[in-house]
């Protein structure tokens, strides 16, 4: 029951899409987590809700919204047209869909780790001569780092499993947008595709489990795991 070359290609494409989604979403997730953890402002509940929307909205709705946004006449599409790129029906579009779906989980994990950083330590750093940015780089970020890493790994795992928004936004194109879940779905439609489904599904289980275990281990290492699990 060995994997065929085509199936390895699917796994590699999935890893590529998920890594890109994680790397792209991480800075935004960090900023959102910091804002939600540290600032008080009117409309915070609304922002919190918006960030969490992909967690509860039907993924097909997210895919449809992305399709509108990144259509040639949409705001995202026009912006990308200026740069001379399009994400429609490309693997980069699959990465965008995965990033949007992974964002809430990443924000939650990072927010927990930022909330676990003792502000009294930051105050101590200020009295020792560190400005706000130096304090952030030398105290806040190192103390939150395991949680940030856990959030990134969790986002990666969520991206690996992304299906609904992806197939709606960028369709199911072999070698371009056909990631593991989409390939499994396609194989299920074919008579005699059972073997491929088994192999791909086992691969999906192995990759996702490894990422989840890594994320949980990192959360425990950071000490923020006691306060609450992300999932």
């Amino acid at each position: 029951m060995g994997m065929t070359g085509e199936e390895w290609g699917i796994v590699l494409l999935s890893l590529q899409v998920s890594l890109a989604a994680m790397a792209g979403a991480l800075p935004l997730a960090f900023v959102l987590a910091w804002v939600l953890a540290r600032l008080q402002f009117p409309g915070k509940i609304l922002l919190d809700g918006l960030v969490h929307l992909p967690l509860v909205l039907p993924p097909v709705v997210i895919g449809w919204l992305l399709l509108i946004a990144f259509a040639p006449e949409g705001p995202g599409g026009r912006l990308l047209a200026l740069l001379g790129v399009s994400v429609l029906f490309r693997w980069t579009g699959a990465a965008i869909a995965a990033a949007v779906m992974a964002l809430p989980l990443m924000v939650r994990a990072i927010r927990l780790s930022l909330e676990a950083v003792d502000p009294r330590l930051e105050a101590a750093a200020r009295t020792l001569g560190a400005g706000p940015w130096q304090t952030f780089w030398t105290i806040t970020l190192p103390l939150a780092a395991p949680g940030v890493l856990a959030g990134a790994v969790l986002g990666f795992a969520r991206s690996l499993g992304e299906f609904g928004a992806t197939i709606t936004f960028v369709s199911n194109i072999p070698d371009e947008t056909r990631t593991l879940p989409l390939a499994i779905y396609a194989a299920l439609q074919l008579p005699g595709g059972d073997g491929a489904v088994w192999r791909l599904a086992l691969m999906a289980v192995a990759l996702s489990l490894a990422a989840l275990v890594a994320s949980e281990a990192l959360t425990r290492a950071s000490g923020s795991g006691r306060g609450g699990h992300v999932l």
Binding site: D118, R120, T127, L128, A130
Partner: peptide
């Protein structure tokens, strides 16, 4: 700001 005051603080909880 605290970083411009040149005060050495020994906090009760040490920090």
């Amino acid at each position: 700001p605290p970083e411009a005051r040149a005060c050495g603080v020994m906090f009760q909880d040490l920090r």
